[in-house]
Design a protein around this nucleic acid. Sequence first.
DNA 1: CTGTTAGCGCGTTCAT
DNA 2: ATGAACGCGCTAACAG
Lengths: 327, 327
Amino acid sequence: MATIRDVSKLAGVSVATVSRVINQKGYVHEDTLQRVHKAIKLLNYVPNDVARSLSKKSTKTIALFVPDITNPFFNELALAVEKVTQLYGYTTILCNTNESAKIERQYIQNLKQKYIDGFIMATNTLTEEEIDQLDIPMVAVDRSSTPVVPTVTSKNRDGAHLAVQALLQQGCNKIAHIRGPKGLWIAEERCQGYLDLVENMPWFTPKLIANGNFQLKEAAEAAKKLFKEHPDIDGVFAGNDLMAIGTLRALQEHGIRVPDQVQIIGYDGISLAEMVYPELSTVSQSIYEMGMLAARILIKKIEQIHLDEENHQLEVKLVQRGTTRHG
Amino acid sequence: MATIRDVSKLAGVSVATVSRVINQKGYVHEDTLQRVHKAIKLLNYVPNDVARSLSKKSTKTIALFVPDITNPFFNELALAVEKVTQLYGYTTILCNTNESAKIERQYIQNLKQKYIDGFIMATNTLTEEEIDQLDIPMVAVDRSSTPVVPTVTSKNRDGAHLAVQALLQQGCNKIAHIRGPKGLWIAEERCQGYLDLVENMPWFTPKLIANGNFQLKEAAEAAKKLFKEHPDIDGVFAGNDLMAIGTLRALQEHGIRVPDQVQIIGYDGISLAEMVYPELSTVSQSIYEMGMLAARILIKKIEQIHLDEENHQLEVKLVQRGTTRHG
DNA sequence: CTGTTAGCGCGTTCAT
DNA sequence: ATGAACGCGCTAACAG
């Protein structure tokens, strides 16, 4: 690997000049510019990022933390983040914490030692104190743990309303909710949205809410139990698509027809939702939007560009497909 | 952030000594060792990886390239790789090439500038020449593009035999194959395995082979077309689980009962296979094994430890679940 | 056992 | 417009 010095020698200039042309900074005569370029081509020179990072104390790379890389939602988010960071000349590295706070901290420590420029967190285990102490730009997506960092989420409660309303209008007389993890803000909001509309219904009972932990398998188990105890449930609003698919699977296993006997609506709008049969009706949030927005905000923070609006709550929309009886 | 110099001053020793205790290299008196440790604690000192990398020309990090992060197979592989690299003190960064040779090359260029120590490729777009020129340790998993790098795969052809044999024994009279991408070695092998057993059957025709590109959606389309033209197909061997699930979905959409009317067997053994209904029968390869093995081999190559066996072909086994009529 | 010093490859004043 | 020289933080001889 050629170094900047090799180039400078070949071009008959100083390293400073070479540095100038590489970074397009400061004045440099047209002729010497050509000579330097030629030398670079000749030597197949590529600047060494490690050395560059050391002197600039910046790596032009950010990290995206996701709790579960297995969930398509986060894959799609990652794609979006990567797209914009790349556009701005940044590299993004994906960290799967596997829902483990310990792994998350390890990663953070590790990355800090590597001069990471910023974090996008789709996880929520960090305390405000830790974030402050970190002293590295950060933004939260989807889940947000604390108000001290810019956050991008969707209107979870509104979304839940949309879903439950549709189920109600389309003839459901007893609607259950498979919710996400206790204590997780977005799970609480979606649950609350469900409650807003059904709490005062004559048929309502808290037993209609089961925890599926945002996981397909757990949701399937929860659904089975739910239907055993309340065979007359005819509508399910799941806190995310994965759990909705798990519910669908449980019902199919028991020979219950969807959407004839039971209608299901999920939340997220992941592409897997269109790959099950019947295709899943869902409250779709623009995952791609969220990722792009978060990335843009982070980069602005890194480059110290002023943001007039740090927090965003994106609109959601109801997409009815095969698991509901609509129009 | 404190530097090694700060520590050395506080401890009243030279930076070299501090470096020695950090890296546990060379002799250092017990007393000074204590002093240094105390200083480190006091200053909350953490070595700067960038500086370290610059002088050692090594980052203790490797990259794993996958063609499609959306495919659970690669997620599971990533988990395995990460596990062992971590064990050996390495960090691994996940690169999703999205099946694009261009993105792959960009990543490689980028990482090379960052002193990456090695690559694990689950992709196959690199030519031998490029690999040679790269001059960085590398190992291939799953797909292997060339014989010049150590490779870890499974016995694809044997696996295909297992699947087709089972379908045959369990009463199938006309078996179709949804294959992976043309030109992709593992796809060819699995297809060949299928051919080995059915090529001479009276009912066989090449039209029974359709390309699903290892993609769920494409496979669903392919299956629909296949069944329209050959309604009497009663068995399908898919080149991977995703395509098997796509097939299942297509059949369900047409009201064809699985496994009563049609039996399906996939390939891979991803966990998603257990999450559809009926649960997917499949040729299971030990994805985790593959990942771990590849990582170990790579690390040995990096650390220049001799390997007596560079290439591995792992055993596979047939797992019969809900999409076949067994026993 | 410990300190001095010269790199690692590049960015960046400060002169000229 | 260009060059000399120092600094980024750490490792690795080489002396002692």
